[in-house]
Every structure is written in structure tokens, then in C-alpha cells.
Amino acid sequence: MFELLQLPFMQNALFAGVLAAVACGVIGSLVVVNRSVFMAGGIAHAAYGGVGIAFFFALPALPCIVAFSLFIALVMAALTVKKRGRMDTIIGVLWAVGMAIGIILVDLTPGYNVDLMSFLFGSILAVPKSDVHLMSILVVFILAVVTYFYKELLSTSYDREFSQVRGIKVVPLHFLVSALIALAVVMTIRVVGLILIMALFTIAPYLVEKYVSSLAKMMLFSSLLNILFVLTGLWLSYKFDLTSGATIILTAACFFILFKCGVILFTKLRSS
């Protein structure tokens, strides 16, 4: 166990995992209370367009995905700011278009790209040191923005119209939340891949939501749970030689199911 932690790639994996866990815990909580899980899914999948652009133009992957996800997120925000009722349809379109752009661009890129799968399903064990640095900066940025706008984010999530009467600029805030989702998505791509991002966004915040009395606590405990999922999943994937991203998600899913069964059993026992 300890010699394992001395391997440099393992250290990078641990750092990357913890950083992604925190980002997903914080932003996932916002996503869950705002009921915008589908939007987060749309941004996560459309981000694949960024991967395609990076391959086609031979650009560094992560900055490219950051730029493209932010672009998609802001387009989604602009299209959904007025017609909140049609949000799901617009997101569905962008979801598909983003992925299609990515796939076509990868097709057009000469040579076979082995690395492609790592963006779909994650490759936490291959995260380079430079990505860990960029991820740390993104996490600090996300935490700073969420802390600074905490009251405003809380108020608009709870009651958008009331917040507007209080003079909060709800439209810029809508764009800000979309951008934060995009940043968190980018961070998670390296760890679990864009296909599996939604689990880290939703499972922990959903489990925690019922048992905490504030959004801040929801963010804190979701982050802690995510760290538990990532570390346990990472260890299991190493031990049994499995794909790390999928193992992390299944760890979270098992925890989710066991927890729900435990709650049902507990309430049954108490009522009988």
C-alpha cells in the first residue's frame, strides 16, 4: 500500500482524484438544487467537441476542452435564459451537436488515436503533472467564485424571482453557474471521463441533500463523499486491474444502493 503511494503516477492520480471530487461536490450540489442535471450532462457530452478540436489542430487537450466547454455552456445559458420551459430540448440539441463535432474532427485527424478513450472513460492513472497544476488552479478559482457569490447563488437557486426583486442580477448569475459547470466538467474529464461525469455530480449531492440544513454543508459533505468514492474506486481498480473511471462510479453506485437500503431497513425497524 505505501510503496504504491510513492509511485509518481499514483500521486498524480490521487491529487487529480481529490481535486475532481471537490469540484464535483461543490458544483454538483448547485446543479442538484437548481435541478439542472440535464444541462450539466449536456455540457459534459458537448465537451467532446473540444477533444476533437484539440486532436484536429494538434493543440494541447485541456485548454482546448476548457475553451470549448465554456463556449457551449455560455451558448446554452444564452438560449435558456428566457425560455426556461424549453431548456431540455435546446440542451438535447447541443448535447448531440457537440459530440458529433468531436467525432467528425477525430475522424478527419490522420492516424489512429489511442488516447481518445481516455477522454470518454477517464484515465486517472495517466494524468500528467501539468494537468494536476491546472486542475488545482481551477479548483481554487471555483471555490473562490462560489464563496464570493454564495448568498446570491443560494438565493437564486431557492427563489429566482424574489432574488430579482432584491436587485440580484439573475441573468449574469445564470451565465456564471453555466461557466462553473463547464469548468468542473473539464476537471473531471481526466479522472472519470465525460461519459461518467454525471455520477460524481449527482450521487453524493443527492444522498446528502436530505440530511443537511444548508447549501454550504451540502457542498462540504458531497465533496467528502466524492473523495471517499474516488479513493476507494482507485484502490479497487488498481487491486483488480479494472478501468479506474468505471470502478469509481460503481463504487459510488454501490454506496448509494447500500445507503438507500440501510435507510429503508432502519425506518422499517423503527416503525415495527
Binding site: 438544487v33 435541478r35 443560494l154 437557486s157 431557492y158 427563489d159 429566482r160 424571482e161 424574489f162 441533500e209 436530505k210 443537511v212 440544513s213 444548508s214 447549501l215 454543508k217 451540502m218
Partner: peptide, 13 residues
């Protein structure tokens, strides 16, 4: 407002 738009499970006191 007429109804709180917030959901039932919203974590707020």
C-alpha cells in the same frame, strides 16, 4: 410570492 419556487428537499433553514 404565491408559492416558494424552491423544492421541498432544498437544504435551507
Amino acid at each position: 410570492p404565491q408559492y416558494a419556487t424552491g423544492e421541498k428537499d432544498f437544504p435551507i433553514k
